[in-house]
Design a protein around this nucleic acid. Structure first.
Length: 301
DNA sequence: CGACTTTGACCCGCGC
DNA sequence: GCGCGGGTCAAAGTCG
């Protein structure tokens, strides 16, 4: 899995995030096996808040995965990995002032493990400008240089490779992966205005693990139901909306597509929101990607 | 017939 | 420059 070498640091982040979210639930007395909150943040590409979760991990040791007993036939186990190729995304307005009860609990005030995104962006921009000026001498090629998009990956324990996440995807490629018996599939969001892509591959080390990598940000309404389904009416890249409303509109859909809640649209999050969401969500049935979350999933080496 | 998948060819970046 | 591996294109095939 050569491609995962770039995730070396993220392995640590992933496991930290895992314990972070477990910690979040413990703190809020909310351990009912749902994945609300954590996966939402990463699926919505709200990395500033995801880093907040990361910050919160340092407070406590990892929790036993037995807290999340599987209750569904096709159980899923997720570990988040945010890549270091985090670029070309507008900054989240609240990024500099995240307040949360969990952040306060961190031993170092939530500073030590902060994910650095901005510096990498600037550095990369400079690099790309340099390359641009060099390449201007060359004729235009059919394929433009791929823009590096903010990406994140998570590991899911599932029998199904391509998990339904509420968006419609079109497969546009499949490649054999070096040193892996399993191919990697490439999907693109079917919405023409949306450039979000995702890669799906099965771990060569543990065939029960599916590695899904998202790239880009949805720019349209979430169709939620895969084909001809009900539209939920919230925006995929919304930065604000009323959480209770969202919960209620999602409820029926989530019952059918348990992992949807882990891939829901962006939102602003503050401590009251998290409490509110936890409270609201606890009334929803048990389901979710993280219900049998494993504290640590080793991706490579 | 439209939406989606499959698959070989091609492009691109990178290391040697 | 060359080869390798990852990523994408696009025509053909499949499915409902």
């Amino acid at each position: 899995m050569g491609n995962w070498k770039e995730f070396d640091e993220e392995q640590m982040i992933a496991s930290s995030l895992s314990s972070g979210i477990l910690d979040m639930w413990n703190t809020s007395d909310y351990c009912d096996k749902t994945s609300l909150g954590f996966m939402d943040l990463l699926a919505s590409h709200d990395f500033d808040h995801a880093s907040f979760l990361f910050n919160s991990q340092s407070q406590s040791p990892q929790q036993p995965s037995s807290v999340f007993e599987p209750t569904l036939p096709s159980t899923t186990t997720s570990t988040l990995v945010e890549t270091s190729e985090v670029l070309n995304l507008p900054a989240t307005p609240n990024s500099s002032s995240i307040s949360s009860p969990w952040a306060e609990h961190t031993s170092d005030g939530g500073q030590a493990n902060k994910l650095v995104v901005k510096d990498e962006e600037e550095e990369e921009e400079e690099k790309e400008e340099l390359q641009k000026s060099k390449k201007q001498l060359k004729p235009q090629k059919k394929y433009q240089k791929r823009q590096k998009e903010r990406r994140f990956a998570f590991v899911t324990k599932s029998e199904v490779d391509h998990l339904e996440d509420g968006y419609r995807w079109r497969k546009y490629g499949q490649k054999a992966v070096k040193n892996s018996p399993f191919p990697r599939s490439y999907y693109r969001c079917t919405n023409t205005t949306c450039g979000v892509k995702k890669r799906v591959e099965r771990s060569s080390e543990d065939s029960t693990l599916v590695v899904t990598t998202y790239e880009g940000q949805h720019t349209h309404m979430n169709p939620v139901m895969p084909r001809g389904g009900v539209h939920s009416g919230y925006q995929a890249n919304a930065t604000t909306f009323d959480m209770p409303v969202q919960i209620s509109t999602q409820h029926n859909q989530l019952q059918q597509y348990p992992y949807l809640q882990s891939l829901q649209p962006a939102f602003n999050m503050d401590s009251s929101f998290v409490h509110n969401r936890g409270f609201q969500a606890s009334r929803i049935e048990d389901f979710g990607l993280l219900q049998d979350m494993v504290p640590r999933v080793r991706i490579e080496e």
